[in-house]
C-alpha cells in the first residue's frame, strides 16, 4: 500500500515527542533551509533531517517518496542549467541548492506527519493554538484525501489487473492508456468515498459542540529541549547569515 503522508505506527522517541515540538522543528528546518543557499550547508541540514527520520524509524517507508522527489530535484537542477543566464558552474550550484532545499523541507514535513497522529495535530492546533476545530479538521481531512486517492488508484489498478488489463506489463503506452481510462471514474469514486466518510462522521456526532478529548499529548522535558534547540539554531542561523556565511552570491 502506498503510504504517503500517513501516520506510521512505530515505537520511537520521535513518535513520543509532543506534536508542537515536532511542528516547531519542521518549521525551524524550513526557516534554516530558506536562510542559506550554500549546497554544503543545505546538504548538512538534509542529512540532519534524515537522521531524525531514521530515529523515528520511518525512513524506509518514506524512501519511495524520496526517490520520486530526488528525480524531481534533478529536473530542477537541469532546468536551472538550461535557463540560467550566467556562468555554468554557478547555475549548477544554484540548481543543486534549490533541489536540496526542496527535499529538505518536504522530508521534514513527511517525517512530522508520519510520526504524529492526526488527532494529536488537531488537538494541538485547536487547543494550544486556538484555531477553530472545524477548519483544522477540514484541513487535515483534505490532507488525507491525497492518500485516499492514491490508495484508490492502487485498488483500481488491482481491479484492472485481475481482469486481464495489462497495466503491469511494462509497456508504457499500454500503461498510459489504462490509466487514462480510469482517471475520471477514479475521481468520482474518491469523491463518493469522501462523501461516505462525511456521512459516517456526522452520524457519530462530528460538529457537535461541547466535545471532549480522550488524551492530551503531554509536554515533556525533551520537548522543551527540542523547542529550545530549534530557537537557538534559528538565532544562530540568522547571526551566521548576517555575517555572510552559508550564502553564495
Amino acid at each position: 500500500m502506498a503510504r504517503v503522508i500517513e501516520y506510521i505506527y512505530r515505537d520511537s522517541i520521535i513518535h513520543q515527542l509532543n506534536p508542537l515540538s515536532k511542528l516547531a522543528w519542521a518549521l525551524g528546518v524550513m526557516v534554516l533551509a530558506l536562510t542559506f543557499n550554500d549546497p554544503y550547508y543545505l546538504l548538512a541540514l538534509l542529512i540532519s533531517v534524515g537522521l531524525v527520520g531514521l530515529t523515528g524509524r520511518v525512513m524506509k517507508d518514506l524512501s519511495g517518496v524520496m526517490k520520486g522527489l530526488s528525480i524531481f530535484a534533478l529536473i530542477l537542477v537541469l532546468l536551472q542549467v538550461v535557463f540560467y543566464h550566467g556562468a555554468y558552474r554557478e547555475a549548477v550550484t544554484l540548481g543543486i541548492a534549490m533541489g536540496l532545499r526542496m527535499m529538505t523541507v518536504v522530508l521534514s514535513f513527511l517525517v512530522f506527519l508520519s510520526t504524529t497522529q492526526y488527532k494529536d495535530i488537531i488537538l494541538v492546533l485547536t487547543e494550544k493554538m486556538k484555531l477553530p476545530y472545524d477548519y483544522v479538521f477540514m484541513f487535515m481531512t483534505s490532507l488525507r484525501f491525497v492518500p485516499t486517492f492514491l490508495n484508490e488508484a492502487i485498488q483500481v489498478g488491482y481491479a484492472q489487473q485481475v481482469r486481464g488489463c495489462p497495466i503491469d506489463s511494462g509497456n508504457p503506452w499500454r500503461k498510459m492508456k489504462a490509466y487514462i481510462a480510469v482517471a475520471l471514474p477514479l475521481v468520482l469514486i474518491s469523491l463518493k468515498k469522501a462523501e461516505r466518510l462525511a456521512i459516517a462522521m456526522e452520524t457519530r456526532g462530528y460538529g457537535s459542540n461541547n466535545r471532549t478529548y480522550y488524551k492530551e499529548p503531554i509536554i515533556s522535558t525533551l520537548d522543551y529541549f527540542v523547542i529550545f534547540l530549534v530557537v537557538v539554531l534559528i538565532i544562530g542561523a540568522i547571526i551566521l547569515r548576517c555575517k555572510g556565511l552559508g550564502v553564495l552570491h
Partner: peptide, 24 residues
C-alpha cells in the same frame, strides 16, 4: 508471472465489491 497474465487462468472476486467496481 504478471497478475494480468495470471488472470487468464484465475478469476478473482474481491471480498469487498467496492474494491472491484470502478465503471459507471
Amino acid at each position: 508471472t504478471r497478475v494480468s497474465k495470471l488472470s487468464r487462468q484465475v478469476g478473482y472476486v474481491f471480498q469487498n465489491p467496492d474494491h472491484q467496481i470502478f465503471h459507471d
